[in-house]
Structures are given as C-alpha cells and as structure tokens.
Design a binder for these strands. Structure first.
Lengths: 193, 193
DNA sequence: AATATTCTTGACTAATTGATCCATAATGGT
DNA sequence: ACCATTATGGATCAATTAGTCAAGAATATT
C-alpha cells in the first residue's frame, strides 16, 4: 500500500559495517555512510533513525555473523584443531587490508560508556566464551587437551587472545605471525608434553 | 628574551594522553583537550602545531613511558614471573575506569593509514617484542621455560596477548579474569609438565 | 484510474569542528 | 628602562557535522 524500499536492508547494513569497521563510529561521517551504502540521506534516517541506530544494527549484524563464522569453524575437525582455526578465521590480516573488527573497535572506542553497546558486546562475548569452553571440554574428554583445565577460564583466555590477534592484524601483522602466535599460545591447553 | 611558557610541556602532554586515551583521536575535540590540559587555544597551537601534532607527541610519550614500565616489570624476579607481571601491569582494568591504551587505541583507529603513527607504533612494538624475547631466552637458559621455544616468536605472541588483555580490560574484564587468562596463556611457555 | 501511504531527492539548519588573527601581556638582554 | 621576542586570550573563520523539511515519485489496494 506504499512505496517499497529501493535498497536491501541487510545489504545496506553490511555496507555500513564496512564503513564503521574502517573508520570507527565517530570518524565515520554520515556522508561516508551514504556513499558507502549507496542510498540517500533521508533513506538512511527513515530506515535507521539516526547514525547511532545504524551503528547498533551494524554491530548486531556483525556480531551475529561473527558468531556464525566462529561456530562453523569450531565444528570442523578435532577440538584442538578447530580452536586453532576459530582463532585465526576472519581476522582481516594484512592481505584483507582496510578491514577491521567492529566488536573490538566498539570496545576500544566506547569502553563501557554506552549501555546498549555494552549489552550487544556482552552477549556476543558470553556466547563466544561458551562456544570455546564447550570445545575445550570436548578436547579434554577426548584426551586431546589437558584434563586439569577450567573450560570457562580457557574460553575467556581464548577470546582475549583472539582480540589480541585482531589488534595485531589491524596493526599489520602477517598471516604467518598470527598463525605462529595462535599455535604457540594454544600449547597452554595441550596435555603434558 | 621572550615570555616563558606558563605550563609544563610534559604535564600538558600527559593530560592530552588521558584525553586521547579516553576518546580516541577523532572523537577528542580540541575543546576537550584545552579543558583537559588547562591551557588556552592559542597556547596549544603555538606549542604543538595542531591537534595531530599533539597526538603524535602524546603517542610518543605514552609509548616511551609504557616501555619504561614494561622494562621495570621485566627486570624483577625470575623470567617467568616477570613476564607475567609485565603482561598484567598497567592494563587499566575496570577499577582504573576510563583509562585506555593509546597504543592499542591508535592501532585500532588508524590501522596502517598514517605513516608517522605506523612508525611510532612499529618501533615501540619491536622494542617490546625484543624485551619479552630476551626474558624468554633468559627463562630458557635458566631451565625455567621450555628450551624448544623460539624467543622472538614467543615475544610476538606475548605482545599480542597483552593487546588482547588490554582490550578485555577496556571492555570491563575484572582483574582476576585478566590475571587468570594471562597465567593460563603463559603455560604455553612452560617446560613440559 | 484514483488515492493513501511510504520512499526518495536535494536544499537547508543549527551546532560544532579544527584552525587563525590580532591585540595584549610578560619576559630577558642590553 | 627600553625593546625584541614569545605567550596568552578572545573573537572569529570557513568547513563539516548530524539531522530536518518539504516537494515530488513510486507503489498496493480499492
């Protein structure tokens, strides 16, 4: 009964994710976003309310996609191998130049100052920790990982490690440096050697 | 032969570090900086050229101070113990609310887009990697750490791990979570257990 | 085909941005 | 005590910011 949207909402958010990931929230101007998404000004404000609304949607969609990607990586191969893959997937290393992680970016930019962003990142973080912890537990049961581990603590450590890898990737670390670092750190979970 | 500065330059930079660490470069307005430092507009422009000049000075001073702090931590106690302390010192955890790391912040905000910032962070990173690597080597020689390690690779991993801890701290992780994660990850360097 | 409803386009606004100008104030060397 | 030199403070600048307004365009239902 009314004129339909001329753009796909999810695609628009996906484009916004790129812009926000590259520049951060504050430094991404509305003009950057309009150009990056390819829609008009009023379309953005009509569809997302304001810049912050678009950012929240972008962060939501980014976190969801990231968790899917992580879950896929964690369900292939042995627990230990899948954890290594999960640590390294989608880091956006130097070949994938200009990329960036909206999750880490929003944490660094906002710290704990914005309750809605806190909420989005907290649930994503919790889910990711649990996903890692489940795999750690599986690895312990399979006698592949040290049986004295605390799976939840290991999950938290792995999430932090992944953040560090993302920062390093954004800072220009090579794929092999990232891989080596992940492998080395993962020895902390191994059975006595 | 001329009117002297009414403010201490280093103190001014120290104040600027706080402002930039809290908000990032782009989101820190010149007015924020003037208020945070406690000087007038023209004084800032006279002393530092422009906002970016002040940021570069701030990053330089921050990195220098951070390396000093890290070096101090690494020279106390056994190699393994000192590495743990170095990983955890000055993370700005949740009690030290509002803090933030200018190094990680600038990497996340600028990625590799600004050559001068790249240069500052690259030298700081290199020095820090070497400092960690030297301690790893010492730990190996003291039969405290696994003798099959590659000290430089371990150094790089430790720097990445520290970035991850900083992100987690800024995201609200508790001191005990950070400590547990660091301790767990450090098992990767231990002798066979 | 008419119409109600929503979308799109582009001009527009008020506020804030980083930065500059200029007059005044404060110093040290002579 | 003068003066060259530099710092300070306030007014001001042009540009950019996020967000709004109004008029026209495109649809689905009737």
């Amino acid at each position: 009964m009314a004129r339909p949207l001329e753009f796909d909402r999810e695609e628009a958010i996906a484009s916004a994710i790129k812009v926000f990931a590259r520049h951060g929230f504050e430094a991404a101007s509305t003009s950057d976003l309009l150009k990056g998404i390819g829609i008009g000004r009023q379309s953005l404000y009509g569809a997302f309310g304001d810049k912050r609304g678009l950012f929240l949607e972008a962060l939501r969609q980014y976190n969801a996609g990231s968790l899917v990607q992580m879950h896929e990586a964690l369900t292939k191969g042995t627990p230990a191998a899948s954890i290594e893959v999960a640590l390294l997937v989608g880091l956006g290393s130097s070949d994938d130049v200009e990329s960036g992680c909206l999750g880490v970016g929003s944490i660094v930019e906002f710290s704990r100052s914005d309750p809605e962003i806190n909420a989005l990142n907290d649930v994503a973080s919790t889910i990711l920790v649990k996903a890692f912890a489940a795999r750690v537990r599986a690895g312990m049961e399979a006698r592949e990982l040290d049986e004295g581990l605390d799976p939840d603590a290991a999950g938290r450590m792995l999430v932090m490690l992944r953040s560090g890898l993302k920062v390093a990737a954004r800072g220009g670390a090579s794929g092999s440096e990232l891989r080596d670092a992940a492998r080395l750190a993962l020895r902390s979970l191994a059975r006595s050697r």
